[in-house]
Amino acid sequence: MTPIILWLLDRFRSLFQTMGADYDQLRAIVQVKLMMDNRRSIVTLGRYGKQSAETNNSFIRILGIYMLVGALSR
């Protein structure tokens, strides 16, 4: 999942640069943040205490849950 997001981000490289960002730094930060989000064990997903795999897309799953909660609370 992370490579896809980074690939998408790379399409906007010149946009970020015109806005004055150091793109290589920005990319490094996004990459690390995604990596950490995917490793975080999330209580609501019922995997608390399990040693997490390299990537389990928990970030995408939690986004799904946010979507659901958002839709319900309209």
């Binding site: 290589d24 990459q31 690390v32 990596m35 950490m36």
Partner: peptide, 19 residues
């Protein structure tokens, strides 16, 4: 420290920030 990372990943990150 971002402790979900490994030392290697952390140092890669910091190194990249320093260019």
């Amino acid at each position: 420290l971002y402790d979900t990372l490994t030392p290697m990943e952390y140092l890669q990150f910091i190194g990249q920030l320093y260019g």
